[in-house]
Design a protein around this nucleic acid. Structure first.
Lengths: 248, 248
DNA sequence: AAAAAAATTGCAAGATTTTGCAGAGATTTG
DNA sequence: CAAATCTCTGCAAAATCTTGCAATTTTTTT
């Protein structure tokens, strides 16, 4: 049995059952546990799974195991959310997407703010629902399990019929020349629709994601109106972006 | 069972119920209580939960402390969910509403089940999204902050256009003569529509809610097809219901 | 096609981690 | 305060990991 073949099967097994055991795999492939261990180590190095004692887990477990680190970036996200707050005025219709930064924004909303929010993200909606004064409308559709947002034709169709004042978009990849990018085709389609619908598009991202590129393009920087990071707008890391987009 | 896997599941459980018990976990994972204790200790050291005598609490527990009662009844709800599971078959279109019993049902779904779920409940949808094989469609609309479900014309309109095989409805008040009742006008409207849409309606409730009545009527017992509680179907407390509806 | 280089694999010895258990100690409950 | 429940500690067995190494296979170079 070839190494690549084994590793492909391991990934398949992981995607199916969310976990694999060293002993199982060793027996199944009829190789030593050391070999499997090395396979898992390689896949873990390639960020394809999480290696743990005795086997490996799907990356989907990371959500829970990784919480500690998320709390690390949490300060930055709060800062971003603080800046974004200033753009909100009573009576607005605001489109807000998924991602932890948007959830953070939803969390720190002033309680007396009277805004109508439109969202397709379950976590964002749940957080928004804590705010008495604001109205929340959820955009229904097919649920994407990884990102916890709705996607598909229904979402896009609805987005064609509204004209929100603002759109808060969390970004996954952003680069001065490549623009805003993401890795999932369906998610990109929805984000494009959100962009198109909104009067003003605000990109939210932590500096860690600057100069990173994903597989699929959403838009150029110039297609959005404002970029918010946790950095000071004059920070040198934002230099290359300044000519394409306003920065807060 | 892998250690990390256990710990991830513990965190998941905590995020859902805000609490875990040592004895429960020990039994569920089939490991000694000492092991679970050590797991909880580690997670507590990592600031991921709050260790207390006999178990652990969510870090956000303080804010939700008043929900203690709901959390308490969670064993009964698991039992109900177990019974409901038997009704699900591959390929079905299933309408599932909000409430902690439905969330519990979503949680214990067998991973290989291939069902298309329709829901208007954020917590239910979030839980369903953990299941690889099942498809989830969220019914968009106005978000009711108290119940975390969507309500209003859009929801009702969509419900008119579908014919699900089953509908799982959590109930708030149920009484042999008064039928099924609820306290919120908009929620009642949506539940009525769900009833009307579905081929077969299954009512889920813990026995605590038997013989209680809320302000607004949803339907008579005879309008639903099956009642599931945590009690044995022959229990005397269900006596008065037996002539109106099938009981599981 | 032969030689050299690189990658893969299994093995063994020793280190480390995990786990259940027993007994002593602490806390809660009625 | 006495019983019940939970916690803590140390310990030993089992499982898992690490490292170095040698045998084998595959790939590259000459």
């Amino acid at each position: 049995m070839l190494k690549k073949e084994r590793q492909a099967l391991i990934l398949k097994e992981i995607s199916l059952h969310n976990k694999v055991l060293l002993t199982d795999l060793s027996e199944r492939f009829d190789v030593s546990e050391d070999t499997v261990r090395r396979d898992l180590q390689e896949l873990a190095d390639a960020k394809q799974l999480i290696k743990v004692r005795g086997g490996a887990l799907s990356k989907s477990y990371q959500t829970y195991a990784f919480r500690g680190k998320n709390i690390y970036a949490y300060k930055e996200k709060t800062l971003i959310a603080q800046k974004a707050l200033g753009l909100l005025k009573d009576g607005m219709l605001v489109l807000i997407g998924g991602g932890s930064t948007n959830v953070e924004l939803a969390r720190i909303l002033p309680p007396e703010l009277k805004v109508t929010f439109l969202t397709n993200s379950l976590p964002t909606a749940l957080m928004l629902s804590e705010h008495q004064e604001s109205e929340v409308i959820f955009i229904g559709g097919h649920l994407s399990k990884a990102s916890k947002i709705t996607i598909g034709g229904d979402v896009i169709h609805l987005l064609r019929e509204i004209r929100p004042d603002l759109c808060f978009l969390g970004v996954n990849g952003i680069d001065p020349s490549e623009g805003v990018t993401d890795s999932d085709w369906e998610v990109v389609r929805v984000k494009k629709s959100m962009l198109k619908a909104a009067g003003k598009v605000i990109l939210l991202t932590i500096s860690e994601k600057l100069n990173s590129t994903q597989k699929i393009k959403i838009c150029d920087l110039a297609d959005a109106d404002l970029l918010i990071t946790e950095l000071d707008p004059t920070d040198t890391r934002l230099e290359a972006y300044r000519s394409h987009i306003n920065i807060l």
